[in-house]
Design a protein around this nucleic acid. Structure first.
Length: 433
RNA sequence: UCCCCAGUAGCUCAGUUGGUCAGAGCAUCCGACUGUUAAUCGGACGGUCGUAGGUUCAAGUCCUACCUGGGGAGCCA
C-alpha cells in the first residue's frame, strides 16, 4: 500500500489521486453489486464506494464482514462526485479491517432516549452532533485564552482541594490526612483575589464542584469556570470586560465554527447581534418590569429562572442585571454606596432562555466590613484569615466574575441541556461512564 | 429536600371504560438489487409489560410501597 495517508478533513486538495484513510464505519449501504461505506475519522466523514468486479474477490468478501464501528484502512482513488455527501468519494481499491465491531453496537442513526444515550456516552460521542459540540467547546476554550492573553492577563491555577471556603452551596468532601476534611473547590475566586493583588490582572480556568441536589437542564455537579479578577477595576469596568469577552467569544465561534453551528442547526441570526455594549438593568427596575409582566417577585428576592427569561426576552443580546439586594448575594460583594441595601454586582443573562452565564461583582475591600459580613453569615472565621489579609496589607478596589463554560457552550450551540456541553457530564444521578 | 412525569422486544414507542392486547417501526439474521444518502422490497428472530404485594372470575391496564430515570423548584455558573 503506497498511497499517502490523510485525515478526511484534509482530503479535498487530493482529488484525482490515490489516497489512504483510516477510520470507523458509521454507515453501510449495499445495493447488490455496488455498496457504500460511510467512514468517520474524527475530522470528517467520507463516502467510500466499493463495486464488485472492480476489486478482487478477497476485498469484496471482506466488505461483507463490515459492521457499524468496525475500524478500517481504505485506499483508493479520491474523486469529486456530486452524489456523495461532501462532494467527494473514495473509490475503494484496498480494504483492510483493523478492528471488528460486534453486532450489538448500541447507538443507531435513530432516536434514542436520554437515559440510554447517557449510559452510552462513551459511544454517543462518536456522533456528528457531539463532535460539533466538542469542536465549538474547544474553540471557546482557545478563544478565552487568546482573549485574556492578548489583554495582558496572567493565568493562575487555583487549588481544587480546599478547606471550607467559597460559596454557600453543597460541598463534596474527602478525608485529607491529619487536616480533617478537604473540599472540592466551588470557586477559585478567593485565590484569584490574592493573585490579583500579586499580579494585577489574572484569570483562572478550571473545574469546579457543587454538591447541590439540583436536577435541572442548567446544572452540573462538575463544571468548568473561568474567573478573571482585576486589581483597580470597579463594577463598571468589570461589566465592560464581561461584555467584551462574551461578544468576542460569540463572534469568533460565528467566524470559525460555521460548519459546526450548521450541523447543530443553530439559528445564527440570534447570535449575530451579540456585540458590546449590553443593556444594564438595575435590580430594582428589573423587579418593577417583572411585576408589570405578572411575576410574583418581591423586592429582595433573587430572580427565578422564569424571571430571567422574562427580562431578556425584550433584547437581542445578553443583558446585565446590576446591584442585587445584599441578602440575595455572597458575603464578599461590596456594599453599594448609593443604596446600602444592595451590593455592587451583576449577573449576565443570555437570551433564548439560557439565563445566567456570568455572575460578577466588585469585592468588599474594607477589612472590618468584610469581617462583619463573615460573622453575619456565620462562616468559619479562622478559614478566612488569609483572605482578610488581602484587605489588611494594602487593600485595593477590585472586581471579577465567573463565566460558566458549559452554559456558554450550551447558549452558543443552542443546546437544550448542559449535559451535552461537556464530554462526560457529572450530574446528581450520573457518575459513569 | 419538595412537586410533577415515565418505566412494555436490543432501541423508539402504541396498547381505549380491566376481558384475543403481547403489537408496530427500527436494529439483527436470511434473500433480491450497479448510485445509495437514516436506501428500498420480501421473509425470519425477538418480551417474567421496572420490582414486590394487593383488589378482581380476570391486571400491561386499578390500588399501595419500593427501585430507576426524566422535568422543575430552591441554589447557583
Amino acid at each position: 500500500m503506497t498511497s499517502p495517508y490523510f485525515r478526511i478533513a484534509d482530503l479535498a486538495p487530493h482529488a484525482g489521486t490515490s489516497v489512504t484513510v483510516q477510520g470507523w464505519v458509521t454507515h453501510l449501504r449495499s445495493k447488490g453489486k455496488i455498496a457504500f461505506i460511510v467512514l468517520r475519522d474524527g475530522t470528517g466523514v467520507i463516502q467510500c464506494v466499493i463495486v464488485k468486479g472492480q476489486v478482487d474477490e478477497i476485498t469484496w468478501a471482506r466488505f461483507a464482514e463490515l459492521t457499524q464501528e468496525t475500524s478500517v484502512k481504505i485506499s483508493g482513488e479520491l474523486r469529486a462526485d456530486a452524489r456523495a455527501p461532501g462532494g467527494f468519494e473514495l473509490a475503494v481499491q484496498e480494504l483492510e479491517i483493523l478492528g471488528l465491531s460486534p453486532l450489538d453496537y448500541p447507538i443507531q442513526p435513530k432516536e434514542h432516549g436520554i437515559d440510554f444515550l447517557l449510559d452510552h456516552r462513551h459511544l454517543w460521542l462518536r456522533s456528528n452532533r457531539q463532535r460539533a459540540i466538542a469542536r465549538v467547546r474547544n474553540e471557546l476554550e482557545q478563544s478565552i485564552h487568546d482573549f485574556f492573553y492578548e489583554r495582558g492577563f496572567l493565568r493562575v491555577d487555583t487549588p481544587l482541594l480546599t478547606a471550607a471556603i467559597g460559596e454557600r452551596s453543597g460541598l463534596f468532601s474527602t478525608e485529607y490526612f491529619d487536616e480533617g476534611n478537604a473540599y472540592l473547590a466551588q470557586t477559585g475566586q478567593l485565590y484569584g483575589e490574592a493573585a490579583a493583588a500579586a499580579f494585577g490582572k489574572i484569570y483562572t480556568f478550571g473545574p469546579t464542584f457543587r454538591a447541590e441536589k439540583s436536577k435541572t437542564r442548567r446544572h452540573l455537579t462538575e463544571f468548568w469556570m473561568i474567573e478573571p479578577e482585576v486589581a483597580f477595576n470597579d463594577s463598571d469596568d468589570n461589566m465592560r470586560l464581561q461584555e467584551e469577552l462574551v461578544s468576542y467569544l460569540v463572534q469568533r465561534v460565528l467566524e470559525r465554527c460555521k460548519a459546526e453551528l450548521s450541523e447543530l442547526e443553530r439559528d445564527t441570526s440570534r447570535l449575530e447581534p451579540v456585540r458590546a455594549p449590553f443593556p444594564r438593568v438595575d435590580y430594582s427596575d428589573a423587579v418593577a418590569i417583572l411585576q408589570a409582566k405578572g411575576s410574583s417577585i418581591q423586592w429582595g428576592d433573587d430572580l427565578g429562572a422564569e424571571d430571567e427569561s422574562l427580562l431578556v426576552e425584550d433584547h437581542d443580546r445578553p443583558i446585565f442585571v446590576v446591584n442585587y439586594p445584599r441578602e440575595a448575594k455572597a458575603f464578599y460583594m461590596k456594599e453599594n454606596p448609593a443604596d446600602p441595601r444592595t451590593v455592587l454586582c451583576n449577573d449576565c443573562l443570555a437570551p433564548e432562555g439560557y439565563g445566567e452565564i456570568i455572575g460578577g461583582s466588585q469585592r468588599e475591600d474594607d477589612h472590618d466590613r468584610l469581617l462583619q459580613r463573615i460573622r453575619e453569615e456565620e462562616l468559619p472565621e479562622d478559614a478566612y484569615g488569609w483572605y482578610l489579609d488581602l484587605r489588611k496589607y494594602g487593600t485595593f478596589v477590585h472586581s471579577g466574575f465567573g463565566i460558566g463554560l458549559e452554559r456558554t457552550v450550551a447558549y452558543i450551540c443552542g443546546l437544550p441541556h448542559l449535559r451535552e456541553a461537556i464530554a462526560f457530564p457529572r450530574m446528581m444521578h450520573r457518575l459513569r461512564p
